[in-house]
Amino acid sequence: MLSGYPRLRAILLRIAQAVPVVFGVVVISFLLTRALPGDPAVYFAGVMADEQSIEQTRIALGLDKPLPQQFAIYVGNLLQGDLGQSVSSGRAVATDLANRLPASLELTLTALLLAVLVAVPLGVWAATRPGTWVDHLCRIVVTAGVSLPTFFTGILLIYIFYYILGVAPSPLGRLDFIYFEPDHVTGFYLIDAALAGDWETWRGAVKQLMLPSITLALFTLAPVARMTRAAMLSALSADFIRTARAAGLSGRKVLFGYALRNALLPVVTTLGMVFSFALGANVLVEKVFAWPGIGSYAVEALVVSDYAAVQGFVLAMALLFVTLNLVIDLLYTVIDPRIGFVSQ
């Protein structure tokens, strides 16, 4: 039926393949949260709870029912698109995620963009001059980037740019309290503010985004730069480059038109991986910069055994990565036409 649209068919196939993965994630996240030590009923019954009020709380949370029944209820709700209620925030998990996921994504994507803007040219530069001071500079920057933990870099940047120099705004989250968040369209403040034409708020959001995204970018710089350098080195020593040079093509054309394009595949793959671990590394940056993101939400939910919130988080992440992998596969075909979709 879809034979006329190979790309669409492949995409649908990929999505269908993701279903068992997502189901597995649902089962595992359910079982893992239950296996967590700690009793949410005791926690949520509060400081002065006696046995009776702990029992009342257990019933109110639905934790008195047997596990299979709890699971059936959970899956039933999921199928209706209901991720459940978070006990600690008292709101639907879906609402919480919709509020917090964009904050994390905005931070992570900005950081990745910054990292790519610096790392790819740096990698290319280093690859064209291996063994020179540029190469060493690249190596030093990269080593420093990975070896400094993000919370340390974060606090260091705050100390220098906010505390001593006073050029950065107060590290108070996504917007200083004097601004109002833009009307919710995408949840990305930069996009929403731009859509509303509210450039004052947009500038405010950019200022707040600066330090945390630099912190995260420093951390993600390393793999991208190293991968670019390695891929470029092998591309530059390939036969087709020698042929291109022999054919008298300009250095620029050889470097960017042939070598870089061929080196991009592993770089894009690395970017996908970096994106996933950057979302994880977010937690520490979020704590330092009071960023209301999904990492700190998940950690807080874990600490208090807030089952629905933890499960919702894991599921959202799983869906995100399924989508991400699909996007990366699609990017392959754009970068390198030799990779056919049908063959997958």
């Binding site: 606090i155 705050i158 100390y159 989250g173 330092v288 009071a290």
Partner: peptide
């Protein structure tokens, strides 16, 4: 305002 990191809170109040 909720600021989880004590170091950040300290910088804010000192400034």
């Amino acid at each position: 305002r909720e600021v989880p990191s004590p170091a950040t809170r300290r910088a804010l109040i000192e400034r």
